[in-house]
Design a protein around this nucleic acid. Structure first.
Length: 192
DNA sequence: CGTCGGATAATCT
DNA sequence: GATTATCCGACGA
């Protein structure tokens, strides 16, 4: 996961104030902020409780599929006809913010959803913590998830405040993607 | 392994 | 019109 603040964080979508897209970030905590980016990907945030008037959220960057791997795998299958779908390793099903949304079936219809009420289509529930050793197991592990040492580092893909170490993950967790710095996309080729 | 570029459209200036 | 909190396949070593 990665943390994003509001007016004080140049890397945050909320940095330039409230807009139609980021409105959920300015709403009550415990709700989802889903946005669409790069023309084809969804990413999901959880709005956090901060000081009065402040804005903050965390981007869910990756996850381990504990149950329903078949469903997640089906959602991650590519709609391209004819082409044989390459095998997706279990750990890669939700390895990355857009993949995670794909694996969980999250799209813009869930933007602003309250993740704390039972009737919501998207929920976040407290985990049953497992023993601190070893990564989460993708099969047959029930509802037990891992706990362990949490480490932090710079956020991925952001074009500002790259030195702020607001990315957090379980040390040794295989579903965490490697750090990659932001690469500015060169404008579409204009050859003379 | 690694780096590179194309896809693709909502959002904001 | 420019930019983007990304992913995937291609290609080289």
């Amino acid at each position: 996961m990665e943390a994003y603040a509001g007016q004080s964080d140049p890397a945050s979508h909320a940095y330039h104030g409230k807009t139609k897209r980021n409105a959920a970030m300015f709403g009550p905590p415990g709700h989802a902020y889903v946005y669409f980016t790069y023309g084809m990907h969804f990413c999901v945030n959880l709005v956090c409780l901060g000081e009065e008037g402040s804005v903050s959220a965390i981007l869910l960057r990756a996850g381990a599929i504990i149950e329903g791997e078949e469903l997640a795998r089906a959602r991650r299958s590519v709609p391209k006809p004819g082409a044989e779908r390459a095998y997706v390793a279990s750990r890669d099903l939700a390895r990355g913010p857009a993949r995670l949304c794909q694996a969980l079936g999250i799209d813009r219809s869930l933007d602003g959803a309250d993740v704390c009420v039972p009737e919501s289509p998207l929920r976040v529930r407290p985990p049953q913590l497992g023993p601190p050793q070893g990564p989460s197991q993708g099969t047959g592990a029930g509802t037990t998830v891992r706990s362990g040492k949490i480490v932090s580092g710079p956020r991925v893909g952001v074009s500002a405040a790259t030195e702020v170490p607001w990315r957090f993950w379980f040390e040794g967790e295989p579903t965490v993607s490697l750090y990659r710095a932001h690469v500015p996309r060169r404008r579409k080729l204009v050859t003379p």
